[in-house]
């Protein structure tokens, strides 16, 4: 009688080789490690055009209260911020002051000497956004660059 070898009938044992799979996974990992770039998140200010020309939304006639903010860079220190007659100590104070002045058709115009940096301008725009001012822009370029600039005087309460 033929003895059935149970072991033989139970099916041959197959061993799965994991090594090629690990190799493929490592290759993919290395690809993504090399190809990936860490980039900062970019956001935008939706600004109006400078107030001496055409622009969307709020133009000179509709803007009842253009509020001019004057900023200047101070080497090694906090930028100099002026709103009307007042010099403000920080951009948080500027945001608070703009909140108090905010109106339905307010337009914040950020102005300064020609060499003030865009970072300082951005912080002034941030203050305007914090104050929920609907429209903001930068001042129009002056033809006379030696001019110190006119500041609209706002009667602060």
């Amino acid at each position: 009688m033929m003895m059935l070898n149970r072991k033989a009938c139970s099916g041959s044992r197959h061993k799965m080789q994991f090594v090629p799979m690990v190799d493929c996974v490592f290759l993919l990992l290395v690809f993504f490690l090399v190809a990936a770039q860490v980039r900062p998140i970019e956001a935008d200010y939706d600004t109006n055009m400078p107030t001496d020309g055409p622009g969307p939304n709020v133009n000179n006639e509709e803007a009842k209260e253009p509020i001019t903010v004057w900023v200047e860079d101070v080497q090694g220190g906090q930028p100099w911020i002026r709103l009307g007659d007042n010099t403000l100590p920080s951009f948080e104070a500027l945001a608070q002051a703009l909140t108090d002045l905010r109106g339905e058709n307010s337009l914040v115009v950020v102005d300064g000497p020609p060499q003030v940096t865009v970072q300082t301008i951005a912080m002034a725009l941030d203050a305007a956004r914090k104050a929920d001012i609907p429209a903001m822009t930068v001042s129009a370029p002056r033809t006379n660059t030696t001019e110190t600039g006119r500041v609209r005087l706002i009667d602060l309460p």
Partner: peptide
């Protein structure tokens, strides 16, 4: 970069009748 450079770029956009401008920043 300076306010002057930004102003001149905006002016160039106005002259080209481009009225919608975004200014990029890092969040």
């Amino acid at each position: 970069s300076t306010l002057r450079q930004l102003q001149m770029a905006l002016k160039a956009c106005q002259n080209a009748k481009i009225l919608h401008v975004l200014i990029a920043a890092e969040k």
